[in-house]
Structure formats: C-alpha cells, structure tokens
C-alpha cells in the first residue's frame, strides 16, 4: 500500500517536474530552428532540421565568446567573496567578541535593502575607487551577501569546538586552523555556496549593465539583452543565447546537487 502511494506521488511529481522544466526544453528546441520556423504559427515542437546557425551567429558576429570569458572572470572574482563569507561565518560562529551581536544584526539588515533602487550611490562608491568600467568592478557590489554569511555561520556553529581547540594546542595559528581544519569539515555548505556564488556571478544583470561601461566588458546577460529589439525579434537567436547562459548552470547544479540538500539540512534552518 505504501508503495502504491509512493508511486502515485512520484507520478504527480514527475508531471510537475516536466511542466517546470518544459520552458527549457522549448528553449533548446527553438534555438536549433531556422528563423522562419521559430516564428511560425502554429508552432512546431521539434525543429525540422537541426540548425546551429544561431549559435554560430552569437560567436562569429556578436562577440559572445568575449562575453563568456568576462562572465567567467566575474564568477571567479565571486569566489573570492565566497572565501570572505566563509571567514566571516566562521568568525561569527566560533568567536565571542565585542560588538559581535550588533555587527551580525547589521549584516542581516542589508538583506532588507532594495538593491535596484540604490544603483546610483553604489555606482558613485565604485567610481570613487576607480572600479567602474572594469570586469572586476562588476562583481564588487554582490561580492559578499548577508545570506551567504548567515549560511556559513549556521553551518560552522555545528563544527565541534574541541577539534579546533586541539589544533590550537598543537600550536596552529588561527588562520591555519580555519584553512586546514574548519574549511575541510564544511564541504556541504561549500557546495551550496559554490552553486549560489556561481549563479550570482553568472546571472547578474543590472550591475554589468551599469558598470561594464564598454562593450569589451559586457557579460552574457548584457549581450543577451542586446538581442531584445523592439521592431522585430529573432526567437531562434534569443533562445540560442539563453541556452548558452542556462546550460552551464544546469551542468554545475547536476554535479553538485547531492550536496545541496545536505548543506541546507546541516545549516539548521529547521
């Protein structure tokens, strides 16, 4: 009886999963169609012939190769931020210090600030340190997130203090303990944060748009926005660009997914 129930739920979930994922299937199929077929009505689900032309256009005519490289740089810089967040999470979790409570509150307050509407002040701040019009600058406003610090702290509170103290007795420095004891014990949360950091950098849109300045600094999101024209749209080209953005995140997610629920479970949001 229990098996029948599980099967029924499984079938329902499978249906929901297909509905959820369908837009992506539609995206990939459309990206492989020639233009007139992508806009025919009634629409055809499968392309009549597989055409890679839209992808070639992206790279040959539209500089998507460069946008991809820039996006990867933004993601790499993002991982420096992830390291900072891990440090902060560890600091908040494993040390008692003056102002800890207030500082942590302030960290959480930043979650409540509506970001898109403070663009100009943020831009001016970046500009005053000379980071506008650079790829590195694009990653700055989102480098550190309160959510990430929160997750790291939640997880690292569960690390046994005895092991850290043992390392201290062995004469290891605090930073060394963090690097070689605390971090290796934090794989699940690192997996969660890896995917979150990756998608934050890979998908970011407003900041590249505002900060990139020159086209050579554009990221994939901005390049994709350039494909959206008012007079006439080319769905095949747009969907090819969208596929180019979406598929790498899916691959990374599939690789890391078994750690992700575990990471959230152990960070104690329950």
């Amino acid at each position: 009886m229990r098996n029948a129930r599980v099967r029924l739920i499984g079938a329902g979930l499978a249906l929901g999963a297909l509905l959820t994922a369908f837009p992506f299937v539609w995206m990939v199929f459309t990206s492989l169609k020639p233009l007139n077929e992508a806009r025919t009505y009634p629409p055809k689900i499968l392309p009549s012939t597989v055409e890679w032309g839209s992808y070639l256009t992206l790279f040959r005519e539209l500089d998507f190769g460069r946008y991809t490289v820039n996006t990867i740089i933004v993601v790499m810089v993002g991982f420096i931020g992830m390291f900072f967040m891990a440090m902060a999470g560890y600091g908040f979790a494993k040390f008692e210090f003056r102002g800890r409570r207030a500082m942590f509150l302030l960290v959480l307050t930043t979650l409540m600030i509506p970001v898109q509407v403070t663009l100009i002040p943020t831009y001016l701040i970046l500009n005053s340190v000379g980071l506008t019009n650079t790829v590195v600058g694009i990653a700055m406003p989102t480098l550190v997130s309160a959510f990430g610090i929160f997750l790291f702290r939640q997880f690292m509170e569960t690390l046994p203090t005895e092991i850290l103290d043992a390392a201290r007795l062995d004469g290891a420095g605090e930073f060394r303990i963090f690097l070689s004891v605390a971090l290796p014990m934090s794989t699940p949360i690192l997996a969660v944060m890896t995917i979150l950091t990756f998608i934050a950098g890979w998908n970011s849109f407003i900041w590249p748009l505002v900060i990139a300045g020159q086209q050579e600094n554009y990221t994939l999101s901005v390049g994709l926005a350039l494909l959206n024209q008012q007079v006439s749209i080319n769905p095949a080209l747009q969907m090819a660009g969208a596929s180019l953005m979406v598929i790498p995140t899916i691959v990374l997610f599939v690789l890391l997914q078994r750690h992700i629920v575990q990471g959230f479970t152990m960070s104690g949001i329950n």
Partner: peptide, 18 residues
C-alpha cells in the same frame, strides 16, 4: 528534485526571453 530547482538557477534575462 533537480528539475524543480532549475528555474531558481536561471538568469533573469534568459527567463524573460523564454
């Protein structure tokens, strides 16, 4: 589980186009 998580990791620009 993976299928359900896909939309959450997709870029907003791609979402708007799709």
């Amino acid at each position: 589980r993976m299928f359900y998580f896909l939309p959450a990791i997709t870029a907003i620009v791609a979402i708007s186009l799709i």
